[in-house]
Each structure stands twice: as C-alpha cells, then as structure tokens.
Design a protein around this nucleic acid. Structure first.
Length: 998
RNA sequence: GCCCAGUUGGCGGAAUUGGUAGACGCGCUGGUCUCAAACACCAGUGAGAAAUCGUGCCGGUUCGACUCCGGCACUGGGUACCA
C-alpha cells in the first residue's frame, strides 16, 4: 500500500483540531517554553512559500520542546491593520475590514494545511476591538507617564505634577513654585514636554501620495517603504512616543540578549550613541552664544569656521544686513530641497556666510559663522565647529567656499592634504597651544578638563535615535483615544474603551486635507453625566490613527491571556509565561518592530505590569525566500505602417501583434559590437518578421526595423506559465487580460520559447509569487515542510526552486515502506507497494541500534542548533541504512517516528497509530541517545608527520571524559612517540589522538 | 563611505569547530526491469592518463587549515552629511 498523504494529512489535521491537541494551559507542572513567530500581515496575495519557512522552523522547535516535557506556548495571529487593505478600499470602496477578514480566512486555510501546532484558541487580530482596546489602553498609560531620569524609569505623570507643585523640580525655564497659578492650557503644554506619548510640532516624513506621515523606519532611501512614493520633510503637529528616553536602556540591554550579532549591531547603529562635548562659542559683539556638539574636542585649535543648520534658531539674529538677502534666499532653497534631493546629491555642497563671527574660546581669534544644510537641525545642537583639516565634510565645505584649513594633527608622512582631510583618531597634536605633543586620546581628556574648568561646556552624550512619530493620517488603524477640550488634549477613561473605528463614506482625506476620520459622523466625545457631571457637551476626537507598529509592539503579551476582558494580560499569566524564549522572524524588522516591542516591554515593566524587561530571550532570523522572475523580451520595433514609420508599441494591438524575441537575440540587439555574422543573422531575422507580419496583414505592413536605442525590453511574465524556463504559450495567452493573445514568438532555436530569469524579492507585481498550495496538493504538507527545511540553512536567503523536491518525496515513500514491508527477500521491484503492515517485535541488532542512536543524537543536536537542513539529511541516511539492514523492528521504528514527528507530523502520527498507539504522538517523549551504540569498532586513521601521511589502525576503547583529558597527548609527545618508530597502535577518540602504543 | 554576513563540484548545500573536503539531495552517465516510456532498483559522478591538484585571491601560523591570523577581490543585506 503506497502512502496516501492526502487522506492521512486531512485525517490528522481534523484530529488535532477536534481533540485540541495543542491547546496550552496557563498552569502546568512542566517547565514553560514560549515559541513565537512574527505574525503576518494578511495580504491579498495569500501566503507564499517564504512565509512558512520561519513557521515550520518554530513549529519543529515547539513540537520538539513538547516531546522534551515542556509546557509550550505556540500561538499565531494577524497583524491586520495596515496600508494595503486601505489602498484597496480607496480603489474599490470595499471596507478594509471585509478585505482583511477574507484575507485572514485564506491565510488560516493555508496555515491549517501545513499542519502547524498552533494553539488557535489564543489567536489575536490587531484590528479586533477586543484587542485594540488594550493597544489604546497602553497608549493612555504612555500619555499618563513621564520618564524620571533620577530613578531611570517611567512614572505616573501625577508624580511629576507633585514635584512641580512642591517646587522640587523646576518647570522648564525656571518658573519656580507657580504650578497652581498656571492656566490649564499652560499646564497641559508643559506636561506635553514630559509625557511619553505627546503632541508636538515635529519635522515629519510626509508622503503626499499616501497622504500620511511615516516613521524614519518606514522611509527607505527617500521613498516610502510601501509603494515607493517620494517623501518630504514637513512641520506638523503630531503624536509621538518618547522612545529616546529609553535609548540608553535599549542599547545596554542588548548585550544580554541571545540575538544575532548583526541585529544587535543594527540596533546599536540605529540608536547611535556618541559621546562628546558641548562647547559654547561667544558671538562677537553680541549677547548670543552658539553651542556646538563635538566628539573631537581635541581639534579645537583647528576650527576655522562654525556652521549652523538652516533651521537653527539664531540664523536670523546673526545675519548681518549685508548678508540678509543671500541668507534668506538660501533658507528658502534649503527648505524646498526635499529629503530625496538631498540624498540624491549628497556631494553637492551648498551654504552661505552669515556675516557674523564667533570668538574662539582659546585663541580669541575671529571665526566666521556659516550656514550649511550638511548640518542637521535635529541632531546635537544643530551647529558644528568646523575643522576642515580633520573632518571630511568640513573639508569639502571649506574647499568649496575657499575657507582656511588648519592642520593640527600630524598625519602620516605621505598624507596629501590637497586631496583629503586626515580624519583618523590617532596622531600627535601640533599647532595647538597647550595640547602640542599630546596623543589624540590624551588631548581629548585634557581639553575636556579645560573646557569644563572655564565653564565653556561639558561632556555630553548624543543619540541618533529620534522620538517615534505615532500618528498616521489614515483610516485603517487604531483610533487614538484622545479628544480635545478647548484645544487641550485629553485621554479617555479605561471604561470608555475601546474607542471604535467609525464608519466613513470614503477612505480618503477630506477636501480640506483632514484625515479620513474627519469624515465620520459624530466623531466627537460626549461624556456621560457620570464622567463629567454636566453632560451635553461634545469635544472633537483626534483624527489620526496609530501606525502599523502599534498593535505589534505588545502582542506577545496578549497571547498569554488572549480572552481577558479586564486586563491586557493578567499578572498570573504574565508571571507564568515571562517572555518569549524563542522568537523567529525576518531580519528586516531589526530597527522597526524589534525596537518598538523592546521599548513597550520596558515601559510596561516600569509600571510594574509585567515582570520582564525584554520581549524575547532568543531571536532567530529566517532568511528570505526569493522568487525567480521570468521575463519575455518584447521587440520595440519601428514598422512602416501604411507608409509611416511608427513604434510598434504605439500601434493598436489588433494591427500589430506584440513581437516576442528570444533572450539571446535580445542581448545581440543591444550589443553594438556584434560581429558581421551576427549582423547578417539579425537582418535575416528582421526579414522573417516582416514576412510573417505581411502574411497576416499584407496591405498595411512595410518594412520592420528595430529601434536602435532600445531594441527590446523585458516584461515580467507570470511564473505559473513557465516550466523549466519554457513558456507555456497557450496559458500565456490569458496573461494580462489577453494583451499577448496574438503575440508572435521569434526564437531561433526551436518552437519552445525560453524565458529569461532573475532572482528577486517575491512580489505580486513581479508575477513571481509561488504559494505552498500547489506543493501541498501534489506532494503533501510533510513534503513541503521537509523540503523547505532541506533547502539550506534557516538564516540564509535563497531563491525558491522545486528542483530537489523529488528527493524529499522519495524519502517519504521509503519511510512509509519501512513500516509496511514484511518480506525483504523479494526483489526491490516487487517490494514497491508490496507487503502488509508488519512490524516485528524482535530485539534490534547492534547495527540497527547504532543507526537509530546516531540519528537520535544528530536530530537532538540539530534542533538545538537550528540546523534543520542537516536533520533532513540525517533522516534520509537513517532510512536508507535501515532499509539496507531490512529492519522492521518495533524497537527501532517507534523512536524513529517520534524523532520525525516535529518535521513531518502527519506521517509520524499515522505511523505512530500503526504501531499501536491511541494517543497523539505529541504526547510521546523524545528518545534519549545511548552513546555506547555509537562507538566505532575500527577504521583507518591518518597521521601526517614530517610531510608523510601514514594510516594507522584505530582501536576502540570506551573512555570517560576524565580518561580522555588525562590521556590526551600533547603535540611534543606525539612527535616523540613517532620519532623513528612505527606505532603499533594509535588510539583516537573523536578524532583526537589520545594514546599511541609504540 | 561605514557596519554586518557570505564566497566549497554542473546545482542546493555537509564537514563533529584544527584531523580522510565534497555528507545528503538534485542533475547527469551506464545498467536491471519494460514492447517502449515513466516509476523503481543497482553502479558511477570535483579535476587529471597519471603523479598529483583542488574550499574566491595573496601571504602567514601549524606535523596538519574550508576552519586560526594579516592583506585583497567580489556578492548580498543594513545604513548614510549624526559633527
């Protein structure tokens, strides 16, 4: 009987669902283990083969941990707020909720087919009011908190008010003990400077096409991450989260995490801590001072100018009348220069002189003040002391405007200052007064002392990290639970949550440019008499919604207690599950999601709501599975058509069909240096085309010529029409609503059209998305699981290819046969499909036990090390060996089924039941390796000495660890033993020479 | 530019972390079976006639290097005027 995966997989999936095999309780005598996947955004394209990669890995681990006796939490949910559903709503008018529900249903169906061991009773959806109620609740906690630098944690804002009231803390600007005399508006404005969720005028990344602001993390190379639209800088009143308060803790706590070094590095760079000094320069004949931030105070004697950011507050005051028009012009220029333009021409140096000077604090010399947009307003103090000799940016600026360059550190002898500044942080100082002769490091210490003594500034730390913009001018997100009373932002009470997303007639901004929520009827707060006493009053709600990352910043906590209506997570559940033991997801979230989720975790911990300060102990990043796009090459021809030369692309499709040429031909057309032979064949080819077209349309077509400039262009073609790079022409006719129905193919090889191919990110627009459905349908879920693992190391990106899947498919068949064949003596040909279901109860032989225990050891190690790819190999070896040994013994096959169950759960369950078990294999215990079976009897082992390799017999010996340590020979000893004598016996344990008998 | 990761047969990738490089799978070649094909099974498969040579390139440490050290090249990812 051959293995019928369709029947078996269906059967067990139904069994698991019915029996709630993977339901997890919040109490257990077993130790807990939390395995979490980054939950998906349910997109319209469905789950593609890349998604399950991480899910399969985490499922293997979760199942393994269950077999190892852990109480495992392994949940799944959906990050269901987001842009694509809203974009779809704008185009079609369909409510994003409907789109989202449909997509989720499709995702669920696909996930179920793969046989994951998720506890679906704990499913969360970020767009579900039962969930976002608590996202809003956390926002309120953030609003009601401030960061106390003394205790170094978040505290209730009331504690701050008390400090202001009692005068223990001076209100900014040193107003003294006047808190209660201030108006409510004044108090609110002051508190906004402290709240962890706050409203402020911020420079934001505004994306006009999307009609919303974006976080820095959502902007890639000056365009939006989603959609790729240009992004510009704009000043807007915005909700932000004060993540910068946590910068130091986010940085320091990285060290203790078991995350990959590359993710930790990315976060370190993103936080960008830099230690330096603030330093004040007095402006000549004026009251003003310019404060700069520098990490190189040692270069103070090399300062030849000071540069301000165009947005710097002193720009106007410092500009002399003579320079005013030039400066004004420059400020306008800088403002209109969008972020993208600035990125595109980073090398372009722009700036203007203010006309004013500062006094150098140590030399007393005049130093000119310039404005330049290479200085960023948002970083440091928005002003720098320019040292053109030792900073490449200052160097470029000084060179461009002909400003003096001072050399104050001795560079290497061959250094050419005509070309480059000397930026290295090493060397001896020269021309630097009291710093002369000192090394850079010593000089830094000495100058900081001098600066502090003279009260010119002090040591200071800066972070690159910015506060996180939290408002989005979008519909499909969590409403921010805020209303405005006389312009003062106020949050809702807990019992007024959730603030439900209102219905709107359109998902676009209003005509006046307000966010879509402004379209909602009665989008205003009317407090019940119990809340506010009077009643009858109404206050407008906030129009913006939360960003996509809000709901995903705490979801790991909700899984612990998914149905709790009273709390976001109960104390008991949070104390029991602590944090995620293993988190698996893509590395692309390094500076976005993974930073925010750490921030919220720390905040919730500060409030004493959860016991942990980090969301995940261990993080594994699965690699991306790329798609292989296929291309056809369309000829951009000039055809004389009714006597006129026209580009074929401009002609109506019914008169000139698309001409598709081979890749080779396309490359030849582009290649200007084509040889004479090739030219001849090209002319011949064009002649053929002309002929063929004329056959179809004799009176209209004249001569066909190819476009010299761009002879052909590639078009993505749906990979489903392509097999082994050969295009299925009849299927292709339906592509893009029949645009290519009449296409003519010219391929000088034969009738098959060979497509070009390229590895790219899997995406709907590239027509290269491969879903797992087809493989599950044709080969089964276990095959997909094993194959995805077999593809290569989990963390490595790799293009999707099914070329090797037959190996895995064969393995599954061989495995099935192992449990079903009675007579080993019949020919292999007959054995296929023969035999009953006979498992022998005979005791296993030594070689059989060796094969089994070797596999137990290997699989255990592999899972612990996340090298799932080599496990699949080990299973293959194991099954091959057992087949060779004709082993059908219960003693061997039972533990083998358990080993396999994390990888191929369906077939493992089926075999398990054939072995006479009535309970799911999920309740079995992972077998233990007995090392005694693994010891080799003897084999040849080479020892190279004096350039010669000789082979010696290795003799088996059972040695304890202590024995090995005692007997391991040093190199000298080995040499001595071998000198001139042939050893009789060399004893090797685990490839280490432990003894030599001469 | 800076940071991180990587480079092993025709292909995906192994190598117990310094000890027989190429496990396992794909592909390919030959064979068995078949009227034939497919499936399955058996054998072979880094290069070379051989000695030998082979883990991106150059050099070093070592009895011994894919593995460790120094330099370079290329590929992929992240980031960018952060003072």
């Amino acid at each position: 009987m051959e293995y019928n995966f369709r029947e078996v997989e269906k059967k067990w999936q139904a069994y698991w669902a019915q029996n709630k095999t993977f339901k997890t309780e919040n109490k257990s005598s077993k130790p807990k283990y939390y395995v979490l996947d980054m939950f998906p955004y349910p997109s319209g394209a469905g789950l593609h083969v890349g998604h399950p990669l991480g899910y399969i890995a985490s499922d293997i681990f979760a199942r393994y941990k269950r077999l190892k006796g852990f109480n495992v939490l392994h949940p799944m949910g959906y990050d269901s707020f987001g842009l694509p559903a809203e974009q779809y709503a704008i185009q079609t008018g369909q409510h994003p909720e409907i789109t989202t529900k449909t997509n989720i249903a499709r995702y669920r169906e696909q996930l179920d087919k793969i046989g994951f061991s998720f506890d679906w009773d704990r499913e969360v959806r970020t767009s579900d009011p039962h969930y976002y109620k608590w996202t809003q609740w956390i926002f309120i906690q953030l609003f009601n908190s401030w960061y106390n630098p003394e205790t170094n944690k978040a505290e209730p804002i009331t504690a701050l008010i008390n400090k202001f009231r009692s005068g223990t803390l001076a209100i900014d600007g040193g107003w003294g003990q006047v808190w209660d005399t201030l108006s409510e508006k004044q108090q609110s404005d002051i508190l906004l400077n402290y709240r962890l969720a706050f409203l402020s005028d911020t420079m934001v990344n505004w994306c006009p096409q999307l009609g919303t602001v974006l976080a820095n993390e959502e902007v890639k190379e000056g365009v939006s991450e989603r959609g790729g639209y240009p992004v510009e800088r704009k000043l807007m009143k915005q909700w932000s989260l004060r993540i910068t308060a946590y910068a130091d803790r986010l940085l320091n706590d990285l060290d203790a995490l078991d995350w990959t070094e590359s993710i930790k590095e990315a976060q370190r760079n993103w936080i960008g801590k830099s230690e330096g000094t603030s330093l004040k320069f007095k402006v000549q004949s004026s009251e003003f001072e310019i404060e700069v931030f520098t990490t190189r105070p040692d270069t103070i004697f090399g300062v030849s100018f000071v540069t301000l950011a165009p947005e710097h507050e002193l720009v106007e005051s410092l500009t002399t009348p003579q320079q005013k028009s030039a400066v004004d012009e420059y400020i306008i220029f800088a403002k209109n220069r969008s972020e993208r333009e600035r990125m595109a021409d980073v090398k372009k140096i722009t700036g203007v002189f203010t006309g004013s000077y500062v006094i150098h604090p140590f030399t007393g010399k005049q130093v000119p003040i310039w404005i330049g947009d290479y200085v960023l307003a948002g970083y440091g103090t928005g002003a720098v002391m320019a040292v053109p000799g030792h900073d490449s940016r200052d160097y470029a600026f000084a060179s461009h405007f002909g400003i003096e360059k001072l050399i104050i550190i001795k560079p290497p002898a061959d250094w050419n200052f005509e070309k480059n500044s000397y930026d290295e942080k090493e060397g001896t100082l020269i021309n630097s007064d009291f710093l002369n002769g000192l090394e850079v490091k010593t000089a830094i210490k000495k100058i900081i002392t001098a600066i502090e003594e003279n009260e010119l500034g002090k040591g200071k730390t800066n972070f690159r990290l910015r506060d996180a913009v939290f408002g989005r001018q979008r519909y499909w997100g969590e409403p921010i639970p805020v209303y405005y009373e006389n312009g003062i932002p106020k949050v809702l009470n807990e019992n007024e949550l959730p603030l439900l997303l209102p219905e709107v007639d359109k998902y676009l901004p209003t005509e006046t440019g307000e966010p879509p929520l402004a379209r909602a009827k009665d989008w205003q707060y009317s407090p019940s008499p119990s809340e506010r006493g009077q009643g009858g009053e109404v206050f407008p709600y906030e129009y913006s919604t939360m960003p996509g990352w809000a709901g995903s910043s705490w979801y790991f906590l909700r899984y612990m207690d998914a149905h709790n209506e009273k709390e976001f997570v109960s104390k008991e559940a949070a104390n029991y599950w602590q944090n995620v033991d293993l988190y698996i997801g893509g590395a692309e979230h390094a500076t976005g999601h993974l930073l925010y989720i750490r921030f919220w975790t720390k905040f919730l911990n500060d409030l004493g709501l959860i016991p942990v300060t980090e969301p995940a102990k261990k993080l594994i990043n699965q690699g991306m599975i790329q798609g292989v796009s296929s291309f056809i090459y369309r000829l951009a021809t000039n055809i004389s058509y009714s006597g006129k030369q026209v580009d074929a692309r401009c002609l109506p499709p019914e008169s000139i069909p698309p001409i598709i040429i081979s890749k080779i031909l396309s490359e030849k057309l582009w290649n200007k240096s084509a040889s004479f032979d090739e030219q001849v064949s090209l002319d011949n080819f064009l002649f053929q085309i002309t002929k063929k077209l004329q056959e179809k349309n004799p009176e209209k077509i004249g001569e066909v010529k190819y476009n010299e400039v761009s002879p052909s262009y590639p078009i993505h073609v749906d990979v489903n029409f392509v097999h082994n790079n050969i295009l299925n022409k009849s299927e292709f006719k339906e592509f893009k609503n029949g645009e290519f129905k009449e296409a003519l193919f010219f391929d000088n090889e034969n009738d098959d059209y060979i497509c070009g191919s390229e590895v790219e990110k899997m995406s709907k627009s590239k027509y290269n998305v491969v879903t797992p459905d087809k493989i599950i349908e044709e080969q089964g879920a276990d095959c997909l699981r094993l194959y995805e693992m077999f593809l290569g190391p989990l963390e490595q990106s790799k293009p999707w290819s099914t070329s090797g899947i037959s190996g895995v498919s064969n393995f599954i068949r061989k495995l099935w046969r192992l449990y079903h064949t009675a007579d080993w003596n019949i020919s292999p040909l007959l054995r296929r499909g023969a035999g009953g279901e006979v498992i022998s109860s005979e005791p296993a032989t030594k070689p059989e036990l060796k094969t089994l225990h070797k596999t137990i050891k290997k699989i255990g190690q592999d899972i612990e090390n996340f090298s799932f790819n080599t496990s699949v190999s080990s299973f293959m070896i194991c099954v091959n060996e057992l087949t060779d040994l004709k082993c059908n013994k219960h003693e061997i096959l039972e533990p083998l089924a358990i080993l396999l169950s994390p990888y191929a759960p369906h077939i493992a369950e089926e075999l398990w039941s054939k072995l006479g078990h009535t309970e799911s294999i999920a309740y079995a215990t992972f077998p233990v390796c007995n090392e005694e079976y693994l010891i080799e009897s003897s084999f040849n082992y080479p020892i190279s000495f004096n350039g010669k390799t000789r082979f010696f017999q290795e003799y088996n010996r059972s040695l304890s660890k202590e024995d090995v340590e005692k007997e391991v020979l040093t190199l000298d000893q080995t040499q001595k033993y071998l000198e001139g004598k042939a050893p009789k016996k060399v004893i090797v344990v685990h490839n280490k020479i432990v003894n030599i008998v001469v």
